[in-house]
Design a protein around this nucleic acid. Structure first.
Lengths: 209, 209, 209, 209
DNA sequence: AATGAATGAGCGTTCATTCAT
DNA sequence: CATGAATGAACGCTCATTCAT
C-alpha cells in the first residue's frame, strides 16, 4: 500500500533528498532542511515523527516510485526482440540512476530503522534480475545470444558502473569532453550506455552486425 | 611529497578509519575515536588541526599506501603475457577494494578540504587506466585481443561492480551461498572476479581456450 | 462568586487533576491532558486562556468543593458534645486529605497566577481554625477540656501529619502491615486518625475514660 | 561511601537546590540553573551526566549531610535525662527542617532514578525513630513518662507539622506577628517548637512542672 | 608536548500557544 | 463554536574545539 504525502510533505522530502545526497544524513541537520524548505524547524518531527522516520519515508517514497516507473517501462518492451529488449533495459536502468542516483545506497551508515525499506530496494533489484533472466533465456532460445551469463552479474555491472560514474565525476570527466556540468552528465550517460551495452552484448556473445 | 606521521598519529588514523568505515564520518565523534585510541579528546585538534583535517590526512594516508601497493604489484606482472596481466590486474583491483572498500568514495559529503586529496585518488585511477591501456595495446599487437575497449570503461566496470557488491550485500548474497559474513565476502569476491574477467575478456574478444 | 463550568470544561479539569496529581504540573503536558480527555489540543488555551490559568481554575474548583463539603459537614456536627465534635472534625479532615491530598500544597512552584486562589485555601484553613476554636472554647467551658491549645497548631499538626504520611509511604508503611497499596492507604489512614486523636486529646487534657 | 564534589559542582548543586525548591524539578531548566550559577549550559551534563543524575546527586548530597549532622547531634545528648533529650531532639529536627526544608519530599513526581536515594532518607527517618524509641523507653523506665506513644507517629507529627508550616507561610503567618520574612521564619520556628513540645509531652504524659 | 577542564554552538525534539478555516 | 495545522521558543544534550596549565 502506498503512503500518500501532502504537498508540504513532498516539498520537505525533496529538499531533504537533495541535501542528504550532498552532505549525508548525519551531515544534514533538520534546521538545514527546514530553512531551505522555508518551513518551521518543528515541522519534520511534526509531520514524520522524527528525522530518522522522515528518512525512512523518503527512502520508501523514492523506491516505490522507482518500482512503479520500472513496471510501466517493462510493459512497453514486452513485445520486442530480445536484443532490443536488452538494449532498452540497459538504457532504461542507466537513465533511471542518472535521474535518481543519490538515494541508491545513500544509506552507508547502519540505520536499523531502514532495514525494512531496504527490502523494498532489494525487491526492485530482484525484479530487474528476473526480467533480465527472461530476456536472456529467450535470446538463447531464439539463437541471437550464444552465452548465458548470470543476470545478477549483469545487473551488478550496470548499476555499479553507473553509480561509480556519477560519484566520481572528476575521474570520468577526463574522458568526456564537456563544457559544463549538465553537458558532462549528458555525455557521460551516453558514453556509459554505449560501453555497457558493448559489455553486455559481448557477454551474451551477440553479434550486433 | 609524503607526510610523515608519528606513531600516535598513525594510531589515531587507524582507529578513526575503522570507526568511520563502520559509522560514517559524521556518525563518528572525536570522543569515540579518542576513547577507543586511549588518548585525550583534545589530541585530534592538537595534532591535525581539526576533525576534518584529520579526515583529509587519513584519506591521503590511505590513498598513498594504495598507490605504493599498486606500484609494487605492477612490478611483479611486468614480464607476463597480456592476457595474464589483465587477469592479474582485475583480480588485484578487486582484492584491493574488498580490503579497503570503505574509503573509496566514502566521502559523499561536500568536503572542500578534501578536494586536493581527491586528486590523489584520481591519480591512482589514472595510473590504473594507463596500465590497462598498455596491456590492451600489447594484447592487440600480439593478436590475443581483437577488440580495444576504452580502458576507463573497463576500470569503471571493475571498480563500480566491486563497490556495488560490497555495499549491497543483502542483494548479492542471494546469489552467493554462505553461512556467515566472512564466508560471504570470500565467495562474493570470487564470484565477482569470475564474472568481471568474463566481461573483460568478452570485451577484448579474447578467446580463453 | 462561583465560576460555572461547562461539561467539557469539567471533563478537562477532572482529567487534568488526575494527571497532575500523578506527574506534577510541569510533568503533565497539554497534549497528555487533551488526548486523555479526547479533545483537541487547542481546547485548553481556548477554554481557559492558558495552561496556567486552567490550573488556577482547577485549584479554585477543588478548593470550592472542599469548602462546600466542609460546610455541609459542619452542619452535621453542630449539635454534638465538644469531645465528639473534635473527634469528628479530626477524622473528617484526615479523610478529606486522603481523598484529595494531591492538591493541598501541590503548587510548590512560583505560580503568581495562583496567588489569589491560594487565598481560597487559606480561607478554608481559617474556617477550620474558627471551628476548632469554638469547639475548644465550649469544651473548656463545659469542663471536658482542661487545656486550650492554639487551634492553628492543632490544625497544623493534623494536616501536616496527614500530608507527610501520604507523601512518604515508603516510611510509614514500615509500621502499617499491608499487602497492597489500597489496603495500606486504608490502614495508614486509620492509624493516623488514632494517633492524631490521641495527641489532640492529650493536648486538650481530655480524659477519654 | 561519600561522593566528593568540587567547589564548582557544589556551587551548581546549591543553585539547583534553591531553584528546584522554588519551581520544582521540571519547572527548573538546566539553563536557569546554569545562568544563575554563572556557568556554561553544558556543565551540568558534563559534571553529572544529565539533569536527572544531578538531581540524584543533589538528593544524596543533602541527605548524607543531614545524616551526618544528626549523628553528631545524637552524640551531644547521649548523657542527658529523657525529658531533656526529647526536648533537644524535637528542637533539633525542627531546626534542621527549617534549614534544609526544601528537599524533604521535594520529589513529588515519579522519579525512578531517585528510588535508591529515597532509601537514604528513609534510613534517616528510621534512625530518628530508633532514637525516639530509646528515649521514650528510658523515660518510661525512669518514671518521667507515663505513656508510650509510637515513635513513628511522633516523628510524623514533628516533620509533618514543620513542613506544613514552612510550605504554608500565608496561613501560619496570620498567627505569628512579624515584620519581615526572616523574622517570620524565626518566630514561626519558635512557635512551632513550643507547640510541638507541648504535644509530645502531653502524649508522653510528662509533667513539666 | 600534552592534558583535562571548560566552552559556545548546534543538535533533534517537545512545548504551549496561535491562527485560518 | 471548535478545530487541526502550524509556529517560535525553549528543552536537555552532544559536539568539535579552546585554553590554562
Amino acid at each position: 500500500m502506498r503512503k500518500k504525502f501532502t504537498d508540504k510533505q513532498t516539498k520537505i522530502l525533496d529538499v531533504a533528498e537533495e541535501l542528504i545526497a550532498k552532505k549525508g544524513f548525519e551531515g544534514t541537520s533538520v534546521r538545514d532542511i527546514c530553512s531551505k524548505a522555508n518551513i518551521n524547524v518543528a515541522m519534520i518531527s511534526y509531520y514524520f515523527g522524527s528525522k530518522e522516520k522522515m528518512m525512512s519515508y523518503l527512502y520508501q517514497y523514492r523506491v516505490q516510485r522507482t518500482k512503479e516507473s520500472f513496471s510501466e517501462f517493462a510493459q512497453t518492451i514486452k513485445e520486442g526482440k530480445p536484443e532490443m529488449q536488452m538494449k532498452e533495459i540497459v538504457n532504461y536502468v542507466i537513465s533511471l540512476l542518472f535521474k535518481y542516483s543519490y538515494f541508491h545506497g545513500f544509506v552507508t551508515q547502519e540505520m536499523r530503522s531502514l532495514d525494512n525499506v531496504k527490502d523494498d530496494l532489494l525487491e526492485f533489484y530482484q525484479t530487474c534480475v528476473g526480467r533480465l533472466d527472461e530476456i536472456i533465456k529467450r535470446g538463447i532460445v531464439s539463437g541471437v545470444f550464444h552465452n548465458a551469463p548470470k543476470s545478477e552479474d549483469i545487473l551488478t555491472m550496470i548499476i555499479g558502473s553507473t553509480l561509480f560514474v556519477i560519484r566520481n565525476k572528476n575521474f570520468y570527466e577526463m574522458y568526456v569532453p564537456a563544457n559544463n556540468d549538465a553537458q558532462y552528465m549528458k555525455e557521460a550517460e551516453q558514453k556509459l550506455k554505449n560501453s555497457t551495452l558493448l559489455s553486455v552484448f559481448a557477454l551474451l556473445d551477440y553479434d550486433a552486425d
